[in-house]
Structures are given as structure tokens and as C-alpha cells.
Design a binder for these strands. Sequence first.
DNA 1: AATGAATGAGTCTTCATTCAT
DNA 2: TATGAATGAAGACTCATTCAT
Lengths: 232, 232, 232, 232
Amino acid sequence: MAGEKTNKEKLILDAAVSLFTTKGFTATRMEDVARKAGISKGLTYFYYKNKEDLFMALTKKAFDQFKDEFREAYRAKGKNGLEMLSDLVVRIPAFAKQNQVYYDSILNFLDLMKKYNNPETRDQINPLILESVHFQKLLEIHHEPAKIGVMMVSQGIKDGSVRPELQPEITFYTVWSMIIGYEKMMGPIEYEGKEIKINPSNWQPGFQKLLQDMLRGTIQAVKPVTVQGSLF
Amino acid sequence: MAGEKTNKEKLILDAAVSLFTTKGFTATRMEDVARKAGISKGLTYFYYKNKEDLFMALTKKAFDQFKDEFREAYRAKGKNGLEMLSDLVVRIPAFAKQNQVYYDSILNFLDLMKKYNNPETRDQINPLILESVHFQKLLEIHHEPAKIGVMMVSQGIKDGSVRPELQPEITFYTVWSMIIGYEKMMGPIEYEGKEIKINPSNWQPGFQKLLQDMLRGTIQAVKPVTVQGSLF
Amino acid sequence: MAGEKTNKEKLILDAAVSLFTTKGFTATRMEDVARKAGISKGLTYFYYKNKEDLFMALTKKAFDQFKDEFREAYRAKGKNGLEMLSDLVVRIPAFAKQNQVYYDSILNFLDLMKKYNNPETRDQINPLILESVHFQKLLEIHHEPAKIGVMMVSQGIKDGSVRPELQPEITFYTVWSMIIGYEKMMGPIEYEGKEIKINPSNWQPGFQKLLQDMLRGTIQAVKPVTVQGSLF
Amino acid sequence: MAGEKTNKEKLILDAAVSLFTTKGFTATRMEDVARKAGISKGLTYFYYKNKEDLFMALTKKAFDQFKDEFREAYRAKGKNGLEMLSDLVVRIPAFAKQNQVYYDSILNFLDLMKKYNNPETRDQINPLILESVHFQKLLEIHHEPAKIGVMMVSQGIKDGSVRPELQPEITFYTVWSMIIGYEKMMGPIEYEGKEIKINPSNWQPGFQKLLQDMLRGTIQAVKPVTVQGSLF
DNA sequence: AATGAATGAGTCTTCATTCAT
DNA sequence: TATGAATGAAGACTCATTCAT
């Protein structure tokens, strides 16, 4: 009974993910979502107040799964802090590829935050978003992945894989920034790949090495850390 | 006289920038653009085939100005390569803030490139975009800012401010990635600022230092480069 | 209850007929149709995919009623084949006059068929028409009136009112052609009526006689007939 | 000088014919016509008051050429009246095929006449049409082809190829009606051709024979038919 | 919980026509 | 005569959302 309801909610969310992936948020009509979920249009509005609310619910789920990704990287046995962070370089773009809509919703939420935190732009946000219960929940939990990331840096400092003078928060957010930008630049890179000098497969190890150099401090050639089989 | 014609095009573009900034692309109606530009709706379509075409024209202009930003950073007298790159950390977010729509259009174009370069997703792009003359032009010029960035790294290597073993393309794109992510993370950061540990004003110098460490290779505390008055 | 749904469709169709009659197809806006039908614009599109689809639905209904006309002429008690065919000469123009839009839609469909059956011109047809379910149905049923007409000729041959050597299909289509042209020429005829020699009221019996001569085979001048008070 | 102007007019008209043939009247924009004619949009309006005026000019030319067709059929050496009329059965559909737009414009004009001659429907005609000089001219000349046709019947009576008791006007208009319908029915016929019994190539001779039988009179006297209370 | 018919605001886009030059 | 930039009225169509059942 109680689970019944939850079931429908999930059905709708899954349908939305599938359709947003294929056609995008704007091009997807609520009717499509309902049809794909095998229910009526009206019922969709019973579970989600409106399209924005549905999208916020989706974003919430995205953050949950995203957090899992961080958690797994953190829990991995036998890895030091630096390796955990390096792991994210692989995990996050992989997550982005396999969960395109989730990842996009996360980035969208970051943009939302920028507007939200600036009094002058806050009213540019669609009111329906602000009203969404899921949005409110997101305000509380959206930094959780980062919290784990910060713990990775702290761990790295403790185990000596990361320079001790680095400040964990600042360092982690910088790492995350790098990765976000890295994922975003993959598109144009692929295109310019014709010019050979840089392409997704040679950038990855180079990027890894730079990241590690940054975190560990270098001069001398140190053996780069190998993550998931990629060599520098 | 001669510039009179071109003037109308510019008028429209300026109106679009202004309105997109305030209301966003979707919420802005072509009629609003026309009114703001002080011309008739029809004339808007005389100069720009459709809304997407107008947006691509805007994006083109955005890249032009963005390139200027890179050019200025590169031409700056008395700066070594590392300082130029560090300069971008300030310039790009500043550009993003002052030219919100332009910057957004650039990021949007990067997303477009990702879809465009993947045969499976290319058809998710609005055909009107692909048809736009300005889009075609963008395909040719969108990597120009990066070209200058690569030159900065090369310069840094030459002048000794950047580690000689670094490969310029890979290094620059990594730097650019960092900055893109950095700008994007500002939003959430600001919010978590309440928790004090990280906020825009302490992140900036920290970010700068990490970037410089990465590029220059360090262990020892080297005096960080000062850019535009910000200290670490 | 059950008819309630169908009712709306009919409401829309009736409104369309009324407006197309008064203002013509092009000049009639879907919004007008909705208003006249007493429903919302959106609902119109719920029942009919688009304006063309609505028009095809109307054409379908026109053919149905047109067929009824043939059926009635065929079923008439105590009439031989020739009389049935002669009856059409009166019925069809009357149908055209009383159901202007229906008749026009039928002629329009014939024009459509010409384009449709010629591979070189088929693509000149509005795609929305080809997509219409009602168009597809029309492809199947549009020859049904003619089938009845052919039966009339066969009947005429059987009952001796039509020359036995005539081939039914060819003969009927020739008769139909005559009537179509006859109806079409009424306009100019009326105008030239000032010159007295030919006008709608003296043409009708003359036309009838020629038709009958053609079908029955004649020689000598038979006493001319009086039809609707007009003299031959 | 004087011819110069006429030249441009012809250029425009030719462009219009070409475009109307390919895209139809509605789908053809005045700009297309101008471009195809190699002149500016504005000049088009110098020579033709508006789109309707242009179409009426085209219709006028259509009637002129159509009349030539009749004239040639009439002047043909060694043909009797019946043969001339039979000739039209070939000439008119051929004209329709080779001069699609001209023929369509002629039929369109006939429809216009029907509305024009009925006080209740006259105001359904686009005022721009009524204002056109070419429309006024058409009112005067549109019956000229028929005049020649009537002469053919008279000639047929004189040379004995047509039954002497026939009234020329009525007879010719009936013939013309047949041909108009015949041309119109070609479309659907072609389609039903799959059912073999009737198709364009077996209809033509059958149609010709029926026409000739009608005009020339055949075989035995049969009992006249009664239609709707009218006695023959 | 569930349905789906019904609503109507919202917008892009087209094009005949004009007019300053 | 000739141009083409400029106008603006006109209309089809979409879709998020509601609500009677």
C-alpha cells in the first residue's frame, strides 16, 4: 500500500529521466512522461506538483546517486587520499556519461545556486522551483558530495599523499572545479582532436598528472599514480 | 551612412543581450527584442533568420569578446606565461559576471559541441541552430581563445615560469577547465560560505596558488604570484 | 452519454462547414471554428490534428453524403437506368448548391488525386494532408459514388434504357464528367445569360436531352421535354 | 522605350507562371516572383497593383492562349465541325497538362464567375480581384473561346457532321462541360486504374465515341425518359 | 488514486505591401 | 523607373495545468 504510491512516483521519475535524456527537458511534455510511465496525465500532477517540481525531484535523486559515487571512491580499500581524488577524475565523467540527465541536473542546480545566492538575480528563478519541496531539500543536501571530497583531501594529508600545507575545503573545491571543467571541455576537445595535439585519450593522463602534481607538490619526476588502468 | 545598415543588426543584438540577461533566452519573445531595439518585429527576422540564429549571432560576438580577453591577457607588458594564465583566473570570472549572457552562451556552445561531436546525439540539436550561418562560423573560430591560451603556456615554458616538461595544449586545456569549473562552483560556494571554511574571497587566492603550484612545480614555499592585488 | 464525445467532433465539423461556406477555408481561423463550436481552441486540436486534418474530415463526410445522393437516385422506385442517370443531373448541382463546401471539398479532392497519382507532383501536396487519417480513409472510399453510378449504367443496359453496346465504367465516368463540367459552367453561363441564347434554365433541358441522346442513341427529333418550366 | 515596360511586365508574368506551377499560388511569395524575374520587389508592385492583380493578369493571358487553342482547332483545314469538336477533347486536356497554371486559372475564373453572378456570394470575392483592371477585361473576353466553340457546332450542322436539330450554344456548352469534367476526372481515374476497367487510355476513345454519338445522333428511336416529373 | 477531456495563455513566424531615396 | 529596408497584421499550433467524474 504505502509502497504502491512510491512505486508510481518512481515510475514517473524513470520515465522523465529516459525522456529528458532523449529529448531534453523543454522538449519533453508532461503527457509524454505520463504515457511512458503508463499512467494518466492527471496522476502525474498528483505526485509532482508541476514540471519544475518533477525536475527538482529528479535533481534530488541525481545528488543522491552522485553522493554514492563519492562515497564509493572514499570507501575504496587500500587507497590513499590522492588516489581517491584521482579516482573522481574517472568516476565523475563516467557518471556524467552514463547519467547524462542526472549530471546535467546537477550542473543546472549549481547555476540555480548562483542566482539564488545573489539577491539581485534570485527573482529570475522560476517561482515554481522555489516552491518545490524537493528544491528545499536540495538546499540542505547539495553540499554533501563535497563534504566527502573534503574528507578525501584531509585523508590525503593524513596519509601523506597530499601536501600538508593545503587547506582541505579550498583544495577540494578546486579539484572539483577542475573536474567539472574537464568534463565540460570534452566536447570541443573532441572536435579539435583532428589537429591531434589534444584529444580525450591523451588529455586524461595529462590531466591526472597535473592534478596530482598540484596536490602532492613536485619537481622531480614522481611515479604518477595509476587509476583504473590509465597511464601517463 | 554606410554604418547605418549594420547599425540595425547591432541594435537588435544589443536588445537581445539586454533582455536575455534579464529574462533569459526562453522567456524573451522576439517581439520584446524588436520593441527594445525600437524597430518592427518583421525587421528582426529580416536580419536574423529566427530566434536561434539570433542567439548564434550573439554567441559569435561572445566568442569574439572572449577572445579579446585572452588577447589582452597575452599582450600584457612585463608578464610571464604563468602570470598571464593566472590573469585569466581573474579575467574570466570577471567577464562572466559582466557579460553574463555572453559567458552563458559560450558555455552553451560547449555543450552544443559535445552533442555535435557525438553522432548519436547530434540530432538532438535544434535544426535551426545547425542551419544558422553564425553557427557555421562558430565551428571555425570557437577554438581561437584556446589557441592564445596555449601560447601562454608555451611562453611560460620559454620564460621559465612554467615547468618545461608540460605539454602546452594539455596544460592549457586543464587550466581552462579549472577556471570554468571555478566559475561554476562560485554559486554553491557562496551559499556554504555561512560555514565559513570556504567562500569566494578565500577561495580565489587558494585557487590561484594551487594553479600556480601545478604549473610551476613546487614543494618549497615560493612566493605566490600576485595578480590584481589579491594575496594568498 | 456515449454520444457526448462524438458530439464535440460533430460540433467542430459543423462549425467548420458553416465558416468555410461563409469565409472560405483560408480565411477561416481555427479560433473562429472553436468559438463557433462553443469550445476552446485547444480542444479543436485535440480532435483534429490540424486545419488540414479537419478539412479532410470534412471531405470525408462530404463523400459520405454525396454517396447517399447516388444511393437515393439508384434506389428510386420505378426508374430505369437512364432515368437514374438523368436524375443525377438534377441531384448533383442541387447538392452543390445546398452543400457548397462539401461539393467544393469533393472537387478539391479530385484535384488532389491528380497530384497524388503523378509521382512528379505528389510532393506538391501539403504533407499535413497526406498524414491525415481522414485522407487515408478517403483514398479507400472516394470511388464509391462512382461505383453506384456504374451500376446505374448497367441497370440501364439491362432495362433497355441505355444502348447495350456501351461499356458501363467508361460511360458512367463520361456522364459524371459532363455533370461536373455542367455544374462548373453554370457561373459563366449565368453571366452571359444577358445575351439570351443560353442560360441556366434553357441549358438544363438541353443538357438532359443531349445526355439522354448520347446514352440511348437517337435519330429523329423527338418532341422536346419541358423541365421546370423551361422550354427547349 | 514603350517596349521596355512591356518587357518587364512579361518577365514578371513568366516568373509568376513558373513559380505558381511549382509551388502554387498561395505558397509563392511576391519576393520569389521578383527574384525570379530578376527585378526588385518594389518594381513588381509598380507593374501589378497587388498579388491578385498579377493573378488576374495571368488569367487574362491564359484565356488568350486558350482562345488560340480554339482558333487553331477551328481553322484546321479539311475538318468538319464534329472533328473540330473532337479535336478539343485532345487539345484541352493537353493544354491543361502543358499549361497547368493557365488552365487552373481559367477554372478558378469560372468559380469566380459563379460567385460574381450570385448577389449573395459576390461579396465573398476578394475586393482586390474586383478592383483589378485585368479582371474587368476578363469579364469582357472570357466567353470568346466559347464563341468559337459555338461556331464549330454551327459549322458541324452546316456540313452535316452534327445533327441539325441541335441548338449551337447549348450544344457547345454541353461539350465544353464534358471536356472540363473529363479533364478533372483524370486524377481519380488513374488511381482506380488498378481495377483495370477504366483508365486514361481506354477512356479517351470511349469518351470520344460517346461525344460523337451525342452530336451526330445514332441508331433507333427509344422511348424518351421522364426525369423528376418532366416529360420528354 | 486515477482518468483524460477541456482550457487558454503564449509566440514564433510569414508575407503582402509601402515608401524614402 | 527602380530599389530593398521596413512595417505590422494575421494565425496556426503547443502544452502545462485543471477538474469533473
